[in-house]
Design a protein around this nucleic acid. Structure first.
Lengths: 141, 141
DNA sequence: GTTAGCGTTCGACTAACTCTAATGTAATGG
DNA sequence: CCATTACATTAGAGTTAGTCGAACGCTAAC
């Protein structure tokens, strides 16, 4: 199977701009062109693009992903370095998830707080003090 | 209690550059200056900065956070809009966590895969076909 | 045969930092 | 008393990872 850039964008949930950006920056080295110079993507390109998307979404810089690609192309002897890269990314992602969960509970608190104000007509008790423009009538951060 | 910009950076886990950026962009409207024009932060500023950090870390653009600040300063009548903002952010964060977990399992798979190669001297069976530079001897993506 | 609908390239623009350079003040130390 | 250190300031340039607009080319349909 082969695909156009739009089909790939759809499938991968990224924009055509992004795909061209990756291609222009040498991160999709096997993408071919048809007779009109249009990019054509094979299933194997999608596999690799999927890895790119995964690594980017978990915060790996484009340059590091490029280095990972170089390692893959260099062959078996680079497996240890690739292993270290993936372990580092695993850790990074785990702590990112932990951080997001912490932030989520802060947001949950805000949501519950505002819901309470709206439902019960309560005044807001948790405004940082310098954000109150009138402490007696308006306490609604 | 009051703090210098460096103390605040330390406490909040962000850079002094970022704090100045937020201040310069009107997102820390209550930060005072001392007699040498140095910024001085009160506990209430830290509370608000903590909210900024939380919203930024969960992907809210600076401009939206600025709008949220405006709403807080406008008073009680903006509670419904603030409620909607926080609910939207809650959803966004939940789906971000879901996405990260999906990506994490992809990375876990890679880690296990490389560990297996290293421990058992197995060749790599999961190289996207076009990344193989020699299919018979080198299959190590 | 021209219009619609794809694709292309190049280059400008953006967000959110991140850093450098030039400068200022305050405390310490010979 | 002056110098060095340490920290602050500002303005502005640089970076990353896209995002988009303009100008253009090919092909298929009306």
């Amino acid at each position: 199977m082969s695909y156009t850039i739009h089909e790939v964008a759809q499938k991968m949930g990224i924009s055509t701009y992004t795909i061209r950006y990756y291609h222009d920056h040498g991160m999709l080295p096997f993408v071919k062109r048809d007779e009109n110079n249009n990019r054509i993507f094979e299933d194997s390109d999608l596999e690799w693009l999927n890895i790119i998307v995964c690594l980017r979404a978990t915060g790996m810089p484009v340059e590091r992903i490029h280095h990972y690609l170089d390692l893959v192309q260099e062959g078996e002897c680079t497996v240890p370095e690739r292993y270290e890269m993936m372990k580092a990314q695993q850790e990074r992602t785990l702590s990112e998830i932990t951080a997001l969960n912490k932030h989520l509970s802060t947001i949950n608190f805000k949501v519950d707080h505002y819901a309470d104000i709206i439902e019960n007509n309560k005044p807001d008790m948790f405004v940082p003090s310098n954000l109150r423009n009138n402490p007696t009538t308006d306490q609604t951060a």
